[in-house]
Amino acid sequence: MTHDGPADHLEQNRRFWDDEAAAWHAPLARDHWSRTEPSWGLWATPEPQVTVLPDGIAGMRTIELGCGTAYVSAWLARAGAQPVGIDLSEQQLATARAMQEEFGLDFPLVLGNAEKVPYEDDSFDLAISEYGASLWCDPYRWIPEAARLLVPGGRLVFMRYSPLFALCASPEGAASTRLFREQFGLTRLEWGNHVQFILPHGEMLRLLRSCGFVVEDLIEVQAPRPAHRDYAEVSADWAHQWPSEEIWKARLAG
């Protein structure tokens, strides 16, 4: 399976995170870093509810693809893993380094592109992405790269917006009960100053299989009632009725 689309999303998204998004995302970093137990995504879904992290995480070599402020890698480090974080935003990594110093954790943070990671084949036991490469990178590039980086039997776990959310995401505001775009051909979403990627389930499944992955689980996340907040792109009420986000778990065959 190949994909020959444009790669201009990397520069667009780097500018978005360096020039705009980092300013509002940085204040959230301390809250995420200070959590004693991981909670995932928009609705802070507790780790015991979804079991994102595999058993035996202690000692695993892990890479967070599109790490942002690297709070996921911080959770992994506290669990005994050996994490590496990679992100293309200097501003996000600057915040991550400040958090490392504040919380007394130290692990490699790499300025780079999750679609072309400067590590050798078979370097990691776990690749993970929570709204990082899983949303902001071309899946036809970053998923084969994750497969290259993982040892046989290695795990890939990622969280992203759901395809249903992408179909219902309104150009003017929060997700609607109407469909605003077609599912066939859904891949690249242009949002003016940044680009996101969401594949339908069938296409994602075929892509993962073509890269040697065995899909072990797909969790469609339901927002709780009551939820701690709404978001500009989706309300908690909408996400209680339909999944706004999902978690994929896969294992590299071999």
Score class of each variant (00 low, 15 high):
S210W: 03
P108R: 01
H9Y: 15
L53C: 04
E20S: 10
P144N: 07
E102D: 12
R225Q: 13
G85F: 05
A169F: 10
A96Q: 04
F158L: 14
S162C: 00
H25S: 09
E145H: 04
S39F: 03
E182P: 01
W33G: 14
S170C: 14
P38Y: 11
R188S: 13
V215A: 10
E220N: 08
M159C: 14
R229P: 00
A22P: 12
V52Q: 06
L179H: 06
A127L: 08
P38F: 12
R188T: 15
W191V: 11
S34P: 01
D87Y: 08
A58E: 12
A175K: 01
W248E: 04
W238I: 04
A114D: 10
V110K: 01
R206C: 09
G153M: 10
L156N: 12
M159A: 15
G154A: 02
G112A: 07
G212A: 03
E102L: 13
A7E: 15
H32R: 11
D121E: 11
V151H: 08
V117P: 12
L65Y: 07
P152D: 02
R251Y: 00
E101N: 09
T95K: 13
W136M: 07
Q222F: 03
L42G: 10
L65Q: 08
E64M: 08
C137L: 05
R188E: 15
G173I: 06
F184D: 15
R148D: 13
A81F: 00
L10Q: 13
A96R: 08
A94M: 07
K249Q: 13
Y131E: 11
Y231I: 01
P118Q: 09
I143Y: 05
H240A: 15
A7Q: 13
V52N: 09
R78S: 00
R14H: 00
A58M: 04
V234H: 05
I143H: 03
L53W: 14
D19C: 06
A98P: 11
D121I: 02
P144I: 09
G68R: 03
G153K: 09
S123H: 11
V157T: 15
L207G: 00
G202W: 04
L205R: 13
P118Y: 11
L65K: 08
A114S: 15
E102N: 12
G68I: 04
E220G: 04
A21D: 11
S210N: 11
R14Q: 10
L199E: 06
A79G: 10
Y71F: 14
L28C: 06
P46Q: 05
G202I: 02
T177F: 14
R35M: 11
S134Y: 08
P27F: 08
G80E: 06
H201A: 09
S34D: 10
F213N: 06
